[in-house]
Design a binder for these strands. Structure first.
Lengths: 205, 205
DNA sequence: TTTGAACATTGTCCTACGTCAACGTTTTTG
DNA sequence: CAAAAACGTTGACGTAGGACAATGTTCAAA
């Protein structure tokens, strides 16, 4: 596993870096150009290298990330050294170590940009300030929380009691992008099985 | 605020019904008597029998429940007929089929009052009306969502890769009440193992 | 208080999946 | 561009925990 530093990029109000964030917001809430500009002003562009770690366990998460390019992976490592992948955030979606960000307790997880990535970063204070001062963003956050909860639920009871091969079928049904975009090893850790097992199951389709 | 009104509240014969809800709210947000009364007015007391089903899969969830007495269990049944318990709500806490309530899609789960119970019921419209019209309740809902998400996260990833006996130890550490209050069968379905396995493991501790 | 049904426990057996290892291929990096 | 590291696949084998069943116990309905 490779640890690399973030490279901060200066805020450029003229760049087209907010196009995807604009789509994200306007797809979800009624808004206007002025509110959008207020929202955009809180986000700063950052570029990361392959396998950069944005957060490691024990650190308190301070930032929320919107993915412009590349993708983010959230994963844990248990005391046996086994990785467990929780979540992937691809282009056009938000991701962070939400439990740590919410209650400002040390995180249990890593945040990693698997590929070289471009992220829009907003820190916690700015984020909650937006939530409390703009109606649109308050609603966005509510939707994020509701969706995050529903996704988590589906992963619990969707996988509960499933055989490994059923998990693979579930993945092909609901997140086929993962199988093309992400290494087998990461997919396996997302499904809670070993790469060897996943490899065998895929050959059975 | 005028004195007559306070007295009217003080002598309200039904006030005891809202005692636990009052504690729930005041433990979480700054509030005042008037806001509390507005909130209480949206909830209606209901009593249920042992093993009553408040929701079955395929129905759309319309209500949120606050437990005064007894408790609620949420569970699913997969096509093999195996129960999977997702959540228990005991006295003084909220519970419902949140995914269905949020997006008004057919639920995948049962809601059951395992014991004869007393519930304060609020329907979806009233609930979201409260969220949108009272600052206190808006914050309560945000806290509910944040906590629900964090709980779900911990259950998924805390259990991922754990051996069965470690799940039992986890339960004794973090939810010991379950082991005294709930049948072995339900505990087992909550931990994702069979009652036989749970029985064997408990004898090893 | 009785009675039947659901539950808890424990034994025997079985299997899905993990572990470990070998080996070829792809990717990374100096 | 070459060496090394990481990855994917496949085989041999071990084991945690499920399936099934027998027996005793608890508990709710009448």
């Amino acid at each position: 596993m490779n640890t690399r530093r973030l490279q901060a990029i200066k805020y450029n109000p003229n760049a087209h870096v907010y196009q995807q964030l604009k789509k994200y917001v306007t797809d979800r809430v009624e808004t206007d150009e002025q509110a959008l500009q207020v929202i955009f002003a809180h986000f700063k562009l950052t570029k990361t290298k392959r396998n950069a770690l944005l957060l490691t366990p024990g650190q308190v998460c301070k930032d929320y990330y919107f993915v412009n390019k590349g993708f983010i992976r959230l994963f844990t490592v248990n005391q046996a050294g086994e990785e467990g992948t929780r979540y992937f955030a691809f282009e056009g979606s938000f991701g962070t170590a939400l439990p740590s960000l919410i209650d400002q307790q040390p995180a249990f997880e890593y945040i990693q940009t698997v590929e070289p990535s471009e992220l829009l970063v907003i820190n916690r204070e700015s984020f909650y300030q937006l939530v409390e001062t703009t109606k649109q963003f308050s609603l966005i956050y509510r939707q994020i929380l509701e969706a995050a909860f529903i996704t988590a639920q589906k992963r619990i009871y969707g996988f509960q009691g499933l055989e490994a091969i059923e998990k693979v079928r579930w993945l092909m049904e609901y997140q086929p992008k993962l199988l093309t975009r992400v290494s087998n090893k990461m997919v396996a850790s997302y499904l809670g099985m070993t790469p060897a097992t996943l490899s065998r199951l895929k050959s059975k389709l």
